[in-house]
């Protein structure tokens, strides 16, 4: 990267993780960082920014636009504007898949189903209701109940041969169901797969899965089995961007670029593998 080349920064301060994406003027992802959001969103965002800029080989002076999103979007001291995570996930996904799409974002604290038309305009969106069912928080709770590391759930579920079905909507009731299955001697991998299935059931209840389906979010990034399971459930292939956890941050960076120059619009990525 040349010293004077502009970069565009998107920061997604989620309930669980903070993500920063740095794009160059060709909309290529040149730097990124993901960290637990912690309790000081401003500091975490700054730390992520420093790392992401270092990876991009860029300095703060090169930032030509910065937009923040996510629950902590108002706490990012270097952001010049904010957008909702719904708008940013939409922009990020459309960047990779410029067609009519239904986006499923499974985050730490909430889920979203966002629909875009072929021109990338949002036609509707839904967020999960008040409870944790179907979110990353549900997986964290279940991992704790099963005394297994969160990051080990995907590999465990992949070994399942006889998935346990959890019927309950409520996280607390589901935990009781899990305990009941343990009592009945069910295998841990079958229970874990059942936990994942519970997540995707909650998501497909939110809206109809029309058009091409794209999945994003931290839960998808760390648990690719959830994509296979969703494909089986809806009976068609699902598309996943290269870095699904960064989609919101990338969308925010695209908005930053759009705001910085009227000539730059939220068009599809010009160099898909850049």
């Amino acid at each position: 990267m040349t010293p004077a080349a502009p970069v565009y920064v998107g920061t997604d301060v989620g309930a669980s993780r903070t993500k920063v994406a740095v794009l160059d003027a060709s909309k290529r992802l040149v730097g990124w960082e993901v960290r637990p959001s912690g309790i000081d969103f401003t500091v975490t965002a700054r730390q992520c920014l420093e790392q992401a800029l270092a990876m991009a080989g860029a300095s703060e002076e090169q930032i030509a636009g910065a937009v923040s999103t996510g629950y902590g979007r108002k706490n990012v001291d270097y952001a010049r504007d904010t957008r909702t995570e719904i708008g940013c996930h939409a922009a990020g996904c459309y960047h990779y898949f410029p067609t009519a799409i239904t986006i499923i974002d499974i985050g730490g604290q909430d889920n979203k189903v966002i629909k875009l038309d072929a021109a990338g305009r949002r036609t509707s969106f839904k967020m999960n209701r008040k409870c944790a069912a179907g979110t990353g928080a549900f997986l964290e709770e279940m991992a704790a109940r099963l005394a297994i590391p969160l990051e080990g759930m995907n590999a465990l579920a992949a070994r399942s041969t006889d998935m346990v079905k959890l019927g309950s909507f409520c996280t607390v009731f589901s935990a009781t169901e899990v305990l009941e299955n343990i009592r009945h001697g069910k295998k841990i991998e079958d229970i874990v797969k059942g936990v994942f299935f519970s997540v995707i059931r909650r998501v497909v209840e939110m809206d109809a899965m029309t058009a091409e389906v794209v999945m994003t979010g931290g839960v998808v990034a760390h648990n690719p089995i959830i994509v296979q399971m969703m494909e089986d459930l809806i009976g068609r292939p699902i598309r996943v961007p290269e870095k699904p956890q960064l989609t919101g941050a990338i969308g925010a960076a695209l908005y930053a670029m759009s705001a910085a120059s009227e000539t730059v619009t939220l068009n599809p990525m010009e160099e898909p593998n850049g």
């Binding site: 629950y71 957008r83 909702t84 995570e85 719904i86 708008g87 969106f125 967020m127």
Partner: peptide
């Protein structure tokens, strides 16, 4: 978030 996203 919902309201802001709706206005967007």
């Amino acid at each position: 978030t919902n309201v802001e996203a709706f206005i967007e």
